[in-house]
Design a protein around this nucleic acid. Structure first.
Lengths: 162, 162, 162, 162
DNA sequence: TTTT
DNA sequence: TTTT
């Protein structure tokens, strides 16, 4: 009824773009997502989570993503199964992504890029940076609730949220 | 680096509560989550997503959840693997929950409840001990990744995820 | 009953660290999050979303984040209100974060840093990169379900998920 | 760059359906979402979070949701602002929903339903037209950011978020 | 193997 | 202004 996943991690290899018989693009890659704690042997571990994208998003991912790059993925968990050649049912769990954000462009990623060819529109999107809103301009007097408002956030200890 | 899942679905069976050798509670159940679209054969399908909870949350889930009940789960995707008895690596993907909401109470769920009687905190559920497999019958040989697989989930205390 | 927010955006200014009378650290900053569509005037717009962190996380954010940096925030929406000096009730909506990921370290951010002073432990965390798992090494024969499996993903058009 | 919210809570009143001048449906309601902890006075508190839906989803929400019902909402945080009649900038934060799940149907909700009768698609709800304010009485002077504020939500078609 |  |  509701199935939502958000991941941030790094690609374990270059994405693989294929096409269905009817010509629909599908791209698969695996994200390595560090676990938020260490194992009992004191090592940092990661989950390796397979991601699938379709159509236009598939082609964009194939063009912009490369092994080692950081990406954010939004999607849903899908479980499919098939019978392997020993006749066993094999379950495959994947994240079907409907939104992928490239958190590192070719130039900000300082690793070997192989055949990566630089991709189009690198860095496109999150060019922005700081205060581009204008909305926050100068001569305001207290009209911005995200600031201290004179009323200095009311932080008594009673407001502790946890 | 970031790994967040939110699911709403129904339990495919009663949850299974077990204990690690060191006495830590673990509960597993599977959520059936309807897909937001129909298959090309026009049928509504669902993903069956295994969920694992630990400690206090495990005991609460074992006490309050039952087959068919609607629940919301927050957690993270975890992928573990083991070598099966043919020497193949088998991958198991589960949602490790850190928050579970019971969206139907015993009385709002209008179905047969068997021995469950709807009561909260009914003394520990099917609380572990001997052969907890029950529902999964005996003669399986490793075809179910959501289960103990012979390799009985490897729950030593070292696997505690938090 | 459930309240979860995940944002990725850039800080509109340096974070502000304060302390409650009892000495608890609180850091506030605003994230500019680009909207996924353009306005009818064809401009890219952003939402400016106030974020609050407490305690240890507050101090880490104050140390590592700077104006213009990209960050991921996990938390919950909180709405508080106060009476302003005209006696009106003013509503303030903030994201109370319990997890913040620094998606750009001081050196990967190629913008002016002003007084930023470089912060400790820059780049910490997401150092990782590509295939550190080992698990994916070379001589596998089909044991990796995230790959093509021989069974080439079964992508008939019937599998289109949307 | 990424902006995702998931809420589960109860409607504080019946949803309000209106139409833009160009005939696009918009429904607003407020979700009461219990906080996961108690205040320092030991009381359970809630956040009251305004939600906006558009088009078909707006009509469905108006038809199926009622005060007190449990619902799950997926969407994104949007912050808009306007100048009130004292010339102050007022900020309004809302969740623009793209997915709403009704977690209680008319019959599972065991409360008085007034004229609602639980039927699906009961012909448009309180469907816009004249003075839809009703519940909010007349003589308010702008103290409610979740409402029309005199500035009647500015819903020209240009504001369509998708 | 599966829930409504 | 507020829901169970």
């Amino acid at each position: 009824m509701l199935n939502r996943v958000i991941l941030i991690g790094r690609l374990t290899r270059d994405p693989e773009l294929r096409y269905t018989p009817a010509g629909v693009a599908v791209t698969q890659f695996t994200l390595a997502v560090d676990r938020p704690f260490s194992s009992n042997q004191g090592q940092r571990e990661a989950d390796f989570i397979p991601v699938v994208t379709w159509r236009q998003l598939a082609e964009t991912c194939a063009n912009y993503l490369r092994k080692g790059r950081l990406a954010a993925v939004e999607g849903r968990i899908q479980v499919r199964n098939y019978d392997n050649n020993e006749g066993r049912k094999v379950y495959v769990t994947e994240v079907i992504a409907d939104n992928v954000r490239f958190l590192e462009s070719a130039n900000s990623a300082n690793r070997e890029e192989g055949m990566s060819s630089g991709a189009m529109n690198q860095g496109g999107g999150n060019s922005g940076g700081g205060n581009r809103g204008g909305g926050y301009g100068g001569g305001r007097d207290n009209q911005d609730p995200f600031q201290d408002d004179g009323k200095p956030i009311d932080i008594s200890d009673d407001d502790l949220p946890f």
